[in-house]
Design a protein around this nucleic acid. Structure first.
Lengths: 350, 350
DNA sequence: GCAGTCGTGGGTAACGTTACCCATTCCTTG
DNA sequence: CAAGGAATGGGTAACGTTACCCACGACTGC
């Protein structure tokens, strides 16, 4: 096998055809294993391919059809939960000819739009949009042109598939856990809604709404306190400060994401408050860090690997021709660790 | 502006030419702002482009030359330090027509090779390889075909540019800090060398070597203890357990990366040891989490944003035609927080 | 034994863009 | 005033692959 050096002209399908003494059409057929090629032909062409070290030219393929590329839109790569999703996706794509490429969507609508356009321009065969900010109509516009799976938002659409965690169930689990421990003032750190035209379908909106509902259902409407920042370390930090300044101070905080919980943990520490003795804290996502002994965060597990795997499968199915729309939901589980406990007497100033 | 719907034929340069009553050549010239187009022509074509909502077809461009795509190879997206590098790169690329796409290289040589091949197959205009596992000859092979910047390894090459932290200086800072505090048994958590044919140039090898050198220079060769796992939370966790089992037990641990330090922190906590009272702990990278109050990790800052920005600039220069090779090195700084302190008497069993 | 069918291989026109030319007009300069 | 050059616009042949045809031989079934 000849190494495909950088300088020389690249090996094309025509070179392979010459070398194998067949037509380019036949080589192409072997490549896509299309109908109408004998085993002998297949072997012959395969040998020529190996000998010449031929690699298909992606751009040329793209002009005619497939690129064998899956585009993944991520708001930002720093969220460790996304890494799990990606691991699942990669696992599912292994063994196929498809390759995942990642693009960062950023923090606002406009830059997300640019990122998705970049994916579309590059003719990816499928798009996985993770926790997108875009409006439903925008998502459907994208999905009309490219097979699309949306991970996160709870909207059901007829043109794309959805994968999500049952955020309502997860939020119920964690809020009820805190209430059952005896907390009556359970605060919440939410994320500001940056998307446009998305009334109540993003996961952070659902988490906040469910939090309010559960509190109300338990007769604790008075204990509701929400700091709206963002699902980041910094957001959690600011949110906790905001909540601690309230009077009376909450005895428990439910952060909408682990990352925010970490920031809140830092803020509580700075404020000289012990967790869980003074304030209980819970997150959402069960990221790897949450399980570490020195953090031991109570949180909600939502199996990101499984979500990524499923998203990959659905995408391949759609590329394969499925047009019906699928919705897949993961059932979350509460993971109780050491950041939640019954409220102490001192904090129980009712 | 007409939305470029998914189903209909896409708007091509020919449509624009028709609409503006000019030739496709002229449209192409405007697009690439090439020489030989009058201001009037430019305006006229620009108007047609806007009116039709034309977007260049990337694959078609790729067949003739540029793709305006920068490929970024990341071992794994979960490392928060990579996020900083990417932020720097994105910042540098903003305003240009270039788009960064990310691809995960994974944990071994073979899968990294596959990822880079995928980038090359997709005709990216430039490649940024972050902390690659590949051998130098492999890197040069890639660089021969595509403008390349390598971030991490300290190898100097004539065919690609290098960006790195001065890992020797950084390691000296942190190890000497621990020694100055009075520690004599300073252990180290290193990363297993997975690459092939890379004698002593990956950053983890340099950190370990420098650690050994500094210890020896201070007459503390007997205090050297290295656990070779990986720069991950899990690796740090396992590494710390391994080190704590030694007799005599180290009084300080220098983890080669913050992520590993977090894992070590958990292990120390599980073992019932206080930080820094029983054991001091230091990391490397100054990731965002390291600064949070409840962690307050002593670590080495290496300005990932600046590294990413520089890598982007060098890549653009190379794409622009520079052939000389550049090496850029960031000077690290020690950030002392609350995980390091003089050894306590109880642990000072010499 | 003949029409119809199946299996196999190849010819060729796109796909959308750009780089290399050439043609025309107008302006400069000796 | 003629010759040369600058400025501007356009024609056209690639780039590498695939999808749609068609051609040819061999086999089937009546």
């Amino acid at each position: 096998m000849v190494a495909a050096g950088g300088r020389g002209r690249r090996v094309t399908i025509a070179d392979v055809a010459d070398h194998a003494q067949v037509s380019t059409t036949s080589v192409s057929k072997v490549l896509r294993n299309a109908y109408g090629v004998s085993p002998a032909m297949r072997l012959r062409v395969q040998a020529a391919i190996d000998e010449l070290g031929y690699r298909p030219h992606n751009a040329a393929r793209a002009m005619r059809g497939r690129t064998f590329t899956i585009g993944v839109l991520l708001p930002h790569i720093s969220n460790p939960f996304f890494a799990e999703i990606l691991d699942g996706l990669t696992e599912q794509l292994g063994g196929t000819d498809y390759q995942a490429i990642i693009i960062q969507g950023g923090l606002d609508d406009a830059s997300e739009r640019r990122a998705v356009d970049a994916l579309v321009d590059r003719q990816v065969d499928g798009i996985l949009m993770v926790a997108p900010l875009s409006s439903k109509s925008r998502l459907e516009e994208v999905a009309a042109g490219t097979p699309t799976v949306v991970l996160g938002p709870h909207e059901r659409s007829t043109v794309y598939d959805s994968v999500n965690d049952d955020d309502e169930a997860g939020t119920e689990l964690v809020v009820e856990h805190l209430i059952r421990l005896g907390h009556r003032r359970v605060a919440h750190i939410a994320q500001r809604d940056l998307g446009r035209g998305r009334p109540a379908t993003t996961l952070h909106v659902i988490r906040e709404r469910t939090y309010r509902r559960v509190m109300t259902e338990h007769g604790l409407a008075d204990g509701i306190a929400v700091a709206t920042t963002s699902y980041t370390e910094d957001g959690g930090h600011r949110g906790a400060y905001e909540l601690l300044a309230r009077d009376p101070r909450p005895t428990a905080i439910f952060a909408g994401a682990d990352l925010a919980a970490f920031g809140a943990l830092a803020a509580l520490h700075e404020a000289g408050l012990a967790v869980p003795a003074d304030v209980s804290l819970a997150g959402y996502d069960n990221t790897r860090s949450a399980g570490l002994a020195h953090i031991a965060l109570t949180t909600v597990d939502q199996d990101g690997v499984m979500m990524g795997r499923t998203a990959g499968r659905l995408l391949l199915e759609r590329i394969g021709g499925r047009t019906s729309s699928v919705r897949f939901s993961v059932t979350p589980a509460l993971i109780v660790r050491r950041t939640t406990a019954p409220p102490s007497d001192s904090s129980q100033v009712t």
